[in-house]
């Protein structure tokens, strides 16, 4: 927390502001950005191709040192399906102050809370771990539930006006805005999922909110927690694969599967040793009765009710 120094100059500040101005940053986006900053700051032409991941990481490391005293942090994660690494500046602690940092009304926020509840409770059963929501399903949540709201997190909803909810058209708009703002992503099939950015920012909150507080440890939990982490990378899985044994709570990202089993040298679930079939899913592919071409390389089959059934070769791409 000192003044100016060599490690932190206007070029770093510009980078930090640029990061704050966007919801996420990828290496591809960072290249022209850092090149422009260097060109301007050092008065020496730098082209985007000159920027390496190490440069970006150096910038981020420097920034993290400076901003952590203020409870901000630049995190990075991999996109669950594209495997792109994304960086975002997130707030790492919650206080009433930071709650000002929204352009949404209290009603909109409580609608969002209902959507999240739906994603992680209603549409996240042990049978169908969808963890996503269609816009139809989401818009239906536009009204606040009649009977007293249950368990609103520290007043996100209660502090607002009384439970009126949104009009359907407002709910639709809110969903679009959430996509624009980078909190949600939409899939080809029209499902909304949490974006990597949202997962980074809400990581702790999600686990705290949706996983029972009692089951302190992962081991021998009879009922697996609602939010599960990838066995390989430890990040939350909302799109990925699951162990074919329904009671097992082992999950893996599609992007982690290959490496993981190569390292492990066996094809069994790391937890229960059941053979990993790769056709039991988390995410929209686990949704019941909605067929259609899978967007992913794995398979287009919707395997829900029969996780133990074995794969039909013609439906598996590889």
């Amino acid at each position: 927390m000192s003044g100016d120094d060599e490690q932190w100059n206007d070029s770093n500040r510009a980078f930090l502001q640029a990061l704050m101005a966007r919801s996420t940053l990828t290496l591809d986006e960072a290249k022209p950005l850092l090149a422009a900053i260097q060109t301007t700051y050092e008065r020496r032409e730098t082209i985007a191709e000159d920027i390496t991941e190490a440069d970006l990481n150096a910038h981020i490391a420097a920034a993290n040192t400076r901003i952590s005293p203020f409870d901000f942090e630049i995190r990075s994660t991999y996109h669950q399906t594209t495997r792109k690494r994304v960086y975002a500046l997130v707030n790492s602690s919650s206080d009433p102050i930071i709650q000002l940092a929204t352009i949404h009304t209290a009603e909109e926020i409580s609608f969002l809370k209902r959507v999240l509840d739906a994603m992680f409770e209603t549409y996240n059963t042990s049978r169908n771990e969808v963890m996503a929501i269609t816009s139809m399903q989401a818009v239906r949540l536009h009204k606040a539930p009649d009977r007293g709201r249950r368990d609103t997190q520290d007043g996100a909803a209660t502090q607002g006006s009384t439970a009126q909810g949104l009009k359907m058209i407002e709910a639709e708009k809110m969903l679009r805005t959430l996509v624009d703002e980078g909190w949600f992503e939409t899939s080809n099939k029209g499902y909304y999922t949490l974006s990597p950015r949202a997962l980074m920012e809400l990581r702790g909150w999600l686990i705290e909110t949706y996983n029972d507080v009692d089951d302190d440890d992962d081991d021998d939990g009879e009922r697996p927690p609602r939010i599960k982490q990838c066995v390989a990378c430890k990040e939350i899985v909302t799109v990925g694969q699951r162990c074919s044994k329904r009671s097992c709570h082992c999950r893996l990202h599609d992007i982690c599967v290959q490496n993981f089993f190569r390292m492990q040298r066996s094809n069994g679930c790391p937890v229960c040793k059941t053979e990993w079939t790769g056709d039991s899913f988390v995410g929209e592919r686990a949704a019941p009765r909605r067929s259609g071409a899978g967007s992913n390389a794995n398979t287009s089959r919707i395997t829900v009710d029969d996780p133990d059934q074995n794969n039909d070769p013609d439906e598996i791409d590889r």
């Binding site: 919650s94 949404h104 702790g204 430890k234």
Partner: peptide, 20 residues
């Protein structure tokens, strides 16, 4: 910036997922 409130800081998380 968060648009959802979090109750506690990350450090307190039982399973602070290590960076990917």
């Amino acid at each position: 910036m968060p648009l959802i409130r979090k109750r506690r800081s990350q450090q307190a998380e039982p399973s602070p997922s290590p960076p990917p």
